[in-house]
């Protein structure tokens, strides 16, 4: 059963937050992913490419300029699910659609939304599947990308120790 308190969050959006795409952050992300593509770190080579400058690896949208504002819908949903006993929270998958490249110096606006909450029968009983969507626009208002994330919440198999 989808917890009653969780249902109210379906379709709700959280306030957008602003993200800055800095050269150092791009390089550290690409390093951590083990991707040595010069487009992500070598300005001279990147300028000769079709992008005209350093770009971010697809899937990297910079760091928030300020702490991310209170994600009332997303955090409210997660609290409702956890309070109903679904303490084991796992990312289930992620999708990206890319519309335009992200260039160094871009200022992106990320708008998250609770897309859906469904239930699914798993090996360890009922699981709650929360789907989130985030839309990214650049400083010109052009859509850059959309991400779709699924999180699976289940009740721990060993319920001897309850943690909140």
């Amino acid at each position: 059963m989808i917890p009653e308190e969780a249902k109210q969050f379906i379709g709700r959006t959280d306030p957008p937050h602003v993200r800055e795409v800095e050269a150092g952050a791009i390089r550290r992300y690409a390093d951590a992913a083990g991707d040595d593509n010069p487009l992500y770190r070598d300005r001279e080579q990147a300028r000769k490419s079709k992008y005209g400058d350093i770009v971010a690896p697809p899937g990297f949208f910079g760091w928030p300029i300020k702490p991310v504002p209170e994600l009332e819908a997303i955090m409210g949903l997660m609290s409702a699910v956890i309070n109903a006993g679904y303490h084991r929270i796992l990312d289930a998958g992620m999708s990206f659609e890319f519309f335009l490249p992200v260039r160094v110096g871009d200022i992106l606006i990320a708008s998250p939304k609770v897309a859906d909450v469904t239930e699914k029968e798993g090996k360890s009983g009922t699981m709650i599947v929360c789907s989130f969507e985030t839309t990214y626009l650049n400083q010109n208002g052009d859509p850059i990308a959309k991400s779709y994330q699924k999180v699976i919440c289940s009740k721990p198999r060993n319920t001897g120790v309850e943690k909140c």
């Binding site: 593509n37 690896p57 697809p58 999708s95």
Partner: peptide, 18 residues
Amino acid sequence: VHFVTNWIGDEGTLKKIS
């Protein structure tokens, strides 16, 4: 993403991945 973008090269474009 690294795997696919490396294969498609500089002139290829990644549209969707999941």
